Simulated assay, not measured.
Amino acid sequence: MKIKLYFPVITGAIAVLSLAACNDDSLENIEPQQENQRIEQPNALEKVCYYVDQYWSSSAVLTTSLPTSTDTNFMNSQMTKIASLWGRSNPTLRFVNDPSNPNSTYNAISYSTGKIYYGYAIYADAKNKGGNIVNAMILAHEYGHQLQYIFGLPSVSESTARPNELEADGFAGYYLRRPAGYNQTSFAQIAAAYEFAQSIGDYQTTSAGHHGTPPQRRSAVRLGFLLGQYDLTASSFDYNFFYYYQGVLNGTYKMGKNSQNPEIDAYMSKYIDELRKIQSGEISAEEFKNLQ
């Protein structure tokens, strides 16, 4: 059963971390293989499961690869690891190119039919700003929507896409920490990925497509990272994510017991005040990057 969850509006400054990628793939350029297939535009349900925009341009084409074999192999291997972490088989991963309008591919969309389409432009920008880990984070976010389709998540709802998007951010943070996932146990190591996620947050809080404010998105990925201390199913993750996220936001934390995983409380109690300060903007961007 879905319950109504109303998140308060949180304002704060946005800090974008820009890092230079060190890999030189100039000797590994390959010719992307295009598929003679029309790109489906997302339906009403899928329009809440995009990373930046709801549509692809009419001139965009599907490909099975990115411009280099290194990048293609990285994304395909990450897709396998992400799905395997949740005990699932791979969804169909395809890339979107648009030579006539490259900026139109600054997007990634998860489809309810078991497909993820990932744009050339967002891949290149993410890698340039934070390295491979940023694209791993975005892909894990989009796969989080696959889990939502499969298991009927999230367990809360409101008039915007915010619960869906914040939970997908949480799924991404969880994957980045898990030993069988990206296996980054130091928060500082994945700060670039977090900063990229929060920089795409928005303040259109009454829009149906609202993804959450930048501070909310940062705190969601941080919470997912913290829950990565434990081996959880998708449904158990959903329960714990909203138990702590909702409790911190509206002050009801500890008014009800964590009935599914009471052992998590002792660990999470150390971070409740921190999560509140991230959501409110009290923790600065620089302090956020230095969290352990």
Rank of each mutant, 00 (worst) to 15 (best):
T185P: 10
F187G: 06
T92D: 00
G152F: 13
P215C: 08
Y194V: 14
D125R: 12
I116W: 01
A188C: 07
E167T: 02
Q204T: 15
L147K: 08
Q148H: 07
N90W: 00
D169T: 06
Y174M: 07
L176M: 14
E195Q: 15
S157Q: 15
Q146K: 12
F95Y: 14
E165H: 08
R94P: 00
R178N: 09
A108N: 03
N128G: 03
F171E: 11
A172F: 03
P91F: 11
P154K: 11
A180V: 10
G130V: 03
N90M: 05
I109P: 02
A191P: 00
I138G: 03
I133W: 00
T105W: 01
P102A: 12
Q184G: 10
V156R: 14
P179G: 10
F95G: 05
P154N: 12
R162L: 11
Q184Y: 12
A126D: 15
H210C: 06
Y106C: 08
S100D: 15
S112D: 14
Y175T: 04
G173K: 00
H141Q: 14
Y149T: 10
Y182K: 01
A180H: 09
K127H: 02
Y123D: 03
G201I: 08
S159V: 05
R162W: 03
G114E: 04
I116Y: 02
G209N: 09
I116P: 04
R177N: 03
R177D: 01
L93G: 01
P214G: 08
I200Q: 15
P214A: 09
F187S: 07
A192G: 05
E142A: 10
E167P: 01
S100M: 13
S199I: 01
I116Q: 02
I138P: 06
N128W: 01
A208H: 06
F171D: 10
N132F: 07
S155P: 13
D98C: 12
N107R: 03
G173N: 00
H141M: 14
N101A: 13
A191Q: 09
I109L: 06
S199L: 00
N101Y: 09
A121T: 04
A136K: 04
L147P: 06
Y149A: 11
E158L: 14
N103A: 12
T185D: 14
T113I: 08
A188G: 06
A192C: 07
S104A: 15
